[in-house]
Design a protein around this nucleic acid. Structure first.
Lengths: 113, 113
DNA sequence: GTTATATTCAACCATATGGTTAACCAAAAT
DNA sequence: ATTTTGGTTAACCATATGGTTGAATATAAC
């Protein structure tokens, strides 16, 4: 179970360790994207793009639905937050992260009012 | 500048994409560790361990100070939070992460009292 | 029915990664 | 002075990664 989670984290972090893929995540964070939309900003073959998407899929960061001949990719933010959770756990140990978060939250609240 | 940061993120995420290295981060989150302390839980040659530490160093996740013949490694939480920051930026887009954080914070607060 | 579009798959290639062993170096301990 | 200890470095190896091109598939458009 822990190992399962570990393998999962390996794949998530590996998927994020590439600028192209991070940019794709960025795009999908805004809204769903087709494969060619995702490909557009890059000077890379579509086959290359396809491979990158598969890495994101394997990490469960992206889900794909096929609609005719176009594939639609959407971000799985649940998975993204798995990574965040891991990071925060170890960050908070001596850097008192919770204080910082609280501070950021206060700022956010103030802006709302 | 953005590219610099991008290269930085590549290395951070790559460093974290390995269970052994994550476990090391975990150990260093508790307290500073010597190389052999870091090596202890693993069935791996010291040379292998040394390489892992170097990956963490290259990502600027770890700083090393040499004391006689023993090297002391400590976590650079600043770098860790660079990764967190990236993640949170894209997480919050549709998953309203801030609400979740607020909730977690409340729970934490309650436990304190 | 032919052509164009959206996308994957397979084979290939250079380079990177994670590991090993063996040799090396410097500080401590005997 | 010799040996142990803590650690790195170099050379090597198998496998993974990130990219390419070329062919294949299937839907959509003409």
């Amino acid at each position: 179970m822990v190992n399962q989670n570990n393998e999962q984290l390996n794949e998530i972090f590996h998927a994020l360790a590439d600028s192209t893929r991070r940019e794709m995540v960025q795009m999908m964070a805004e809204r769903e994207r087709t494969v060619s939309e995702l490909a557009e900003p890059f000077e890379m073959s579509l086959a290359g793009i396809s491979k990158h998407i598969k890495v994101l899929e394997r990490a469960n960061l992206v889900e794909r639905s096929i609609n005719g001949r176009t594939h639609i990719c959407r971000l799985n933010t649940e998975t993204l937050s798995q990574a965040t959770k891991w990071l925060q756990t170890y960050e908070k140990f001596w850097n008192n992260r919770f204080d910082l978060l609280e501070y950021e939250l206060m700022k956010a609240k103030k802006k709302e009012n």
